[in-house]
Amino acid sequence: MGKKLTSGPFFVPLFQDGTAVEYLLIGFKNLADEQSTVNLSVQVCRDPFLYPGISPEVAVPITISTGTYTELAVDIPAGSCTVVKVDAGPETFQGNNMLRVTLEGDLDEDGEEVVVALSGVKTGGETVVSMVFKHNDFIELDD
């Protein structure tokens, strides 16, 4: 299918003012001269216990207008952009969970095909700085 990239693990923060992360945005820009496809998955550890405790990593359901998926194939026409929104909630993720975004397809670390960025957004539309990943922040996974 192509290269695999991951954000690596990151935490969904809890805020003292009572606000919460409402959703995760994952944006794609296709720099190639043809349509590209990227398979997207978001994994969560809902209860990351302190070592030596463990928490299994599970796929987050991604709901869009065509249904709910644990791995979403994102088709991006040449020169186009698209954004996938993953809402926070008891079935997806909440504050203090640990997330990891994984991508596979027409992409690479150098950003010559599809480039990606992700961001967490909290109540009121404010970007959560600790949940911002630009394309160069992703790392390549070896199989």
Rank of each mutant, 00 (worst) to 15 (best):
M1F: 14
G2F: 11
G2R: 12
K3T: 15
L5Y: 05
T6L: 02
F10G: 10
F11A: 05
P13D: 01
Q16P: 10
Q16F: 07
Q16G: 11
D17Q: 12
T19Q: 11
V21R: 01
V21G: 03
E22Y: 09
E22K: 15
Y23K: 10
I26W: 03
I26V: 13
I26S: 01
G27V: 07
N30I: 05
E34R: 15
Q35H: 05
Q35F: 08
Q35K: 11
S36R: 14
T37H: 00
T37M: 02
L40K: 04
S41M: 13
Q43Y: 04
Q43I: 03
V44P: 10
V44W: 06
V44I: 13
C45T: 03
R46A: 09
R46C: 00
D47I: 07
F49T: 12
F49V: 06
L50M: 02
Y51L: 04
Y51G: 04
P52L: 05
G53H: 06
G53W: 03
I54N: 07
E57C: 00
V58Y: 11
V58W: 09
A59L: 06
A59W: 00
V60G: 13
I62S: 10
T63P: 03
I64W: 10
S65Q: 13
T70W: 01
A73P: 13
V74T: 03
V74N: 03
V74M: 05
V74P: 00
I76R: 05
A78Q: 08
G79N: 09
S80W: 02
C81A: 15
C81N: 13
C81K: 14
T82M: 09
V83A: 08
V84T: 11
V84L: 07
K85D: 05
V86R: 02
G89Q: 09
G89N: 10
P90N: 11
T92A: 05
F93P: 00
F93C: 01
M98W: 06
M98N: 14
L99W: 02
L99D: 00
V101K: 14
V101M: 08
V101P: 08
T102R: 11
L103W: 02
G105I: 09
D108F: 02
E109F: 10
E109Q: 12
E109L: 13
G111M: 07
G111P: 11
E112A: 03
V114D: 01
V114F: 07
V114T: 04
V115I: 15
V115M: 06
V116D: 00
A117N: 12
K122Y: 10
G124V: 06
G124Q: 09
E126Y: 01
S130F: 01
M131H: 06
F133H: 08
K134Q: 15
N136M: 05
N136K: 13
D137M: 11
F138C: 09
I139D: 07
I139G: 06
E140D: 12
L141T: 11
L141A: 13
D143F: 14
